[in-house]
């Protein structure tokens, strides 16, 4: 079984997950709560589902050709923008300043955009993806700061993992082929460890039945880190990131409905 076959298998599994999450989200809006946070989240999941359908169909019909700029990119941008809107529509008192954190997240996305362009050479597509991802990251960092969902050590860990992985990936452009594999292992171990930490933290929060609202933002953080990893990886690392990315959908849904469930 090749890595590509496994990736298509995971993508089909993602389709099933997204379909269920989308149906449950619509049901939640119809029967329980119509808060903007849930509405935007449902729209985002619907867009992600559409992107997934196109991608899976393309991979099955034309497996040997790299997909150029196509309609699913628009769905991916929509997903990111809608997640951002969902995060920003969450109620709460906003007092803390998050300018530095937002600047750093924008810088991270900008650095990654440069790497995407260097890898693919697709300027317009990568810049527009970078803009929508930048918006999502800024919204996420803003609410994480406002709700104090992360402590100082966790902020440091996240920043170290993200910037570290990006820097190592940048270095891999200037070293010979054998060293690239080693650098890949270093950078992806770093970022996967960070994602794993937040998964464990979410489970711990669930067991303790604590910090319900913060749990929601942590699930979004795990999602964003998985997506960032997906965009900078290939082959087996990509498949691992895709699995982690797929796991985030039900987690985000579960935490968002818990937060919005009528008393």
């Amino acid at each position: 079984m090749t890595v590509n076959t496994i990736t298509v298998g995971v993508a089909i599994l993602q389709f099933a997950v997204l379909l269920v999450v989308c149906a449950l989200s619509i049901r939640f809006i119809l029967y329980k709560c119509r808060s903007l946070q849930v509405v935007f989240f449902t729209f985002a999941i619907a867009s992600a589902l559409l992107s997934n359908i196109y991608w899976v169909t393309y991979d099955i019909l034309i497996p040997d050709k790299r997909m150029p700029f196509a309609a699913n990119e628009i769905a991916e941008w929509a997903t990111l923008l809608l997640y951002g809107s969902s995060l920003m529509s969450a109620s709460g008192i906003r007092t803390a300043s998050a300018k530095l954190h937002m600047f750093l997240s924008a810088l991270l996305v900008a650095a990654n955009t440069v790497l995407w362009i260097a890898w693919s050479g697709e300027w317009i597509q990568d810049i527009l993806t970078g803009l929508s991802m930048g918006y999502f990251f800024c919204c996420l960092v803003y609410v994480l700061k406002q709700t104090e969902a992360l402590n100082r050590a966790e902020w440091t860990l996240t920043a170290f993992a993200c910037f570290g992985a990006t820097a190592v990936q940048a270095v891999s452009f200037f070293v010979p082929g054998e060293t690239v594999a080693v650098l890949d292992i270093i950078s992806f171990s770093l970022i996967f460890s960070c994602i794993l930490y937040f998964f464990i933290r979410m489970v711990a929060m669930y067991i303790r039945k604590a910090e319900q609202d913060r749990r929601h933002y942590i699930s979004f953080l795990a999602y964003s880190l998985s997506q960032l990893t997906m965009y900078m990886s290939s082959d087996s690392f990509y498949t691992i990131a895709l699995i982690s990315f797929t796991l985030c959908f039900p987690l985000m849904f579960y935490t968002i409905i818990k937060e919005n469930e009528p008393a």
């Binding site: 903007l36 867009s47 992107s51 309609a71 628009i74 769905a75 941008w77 929509a78 923008l81 951002g84």
Partner: peptide, 19 residues
């Protein structure tokens, strides 16, 4: 109707028809 007619929603709608 749900009070969510914003730019991201329009992009979402566009992605539906495009896909």
């Amino acid at each position: 109707r749900l009070g969510a007619l914003t730019f991201p929603s329009v992009v979402g709608a566009l992605s539906l028809s495009m896909i």
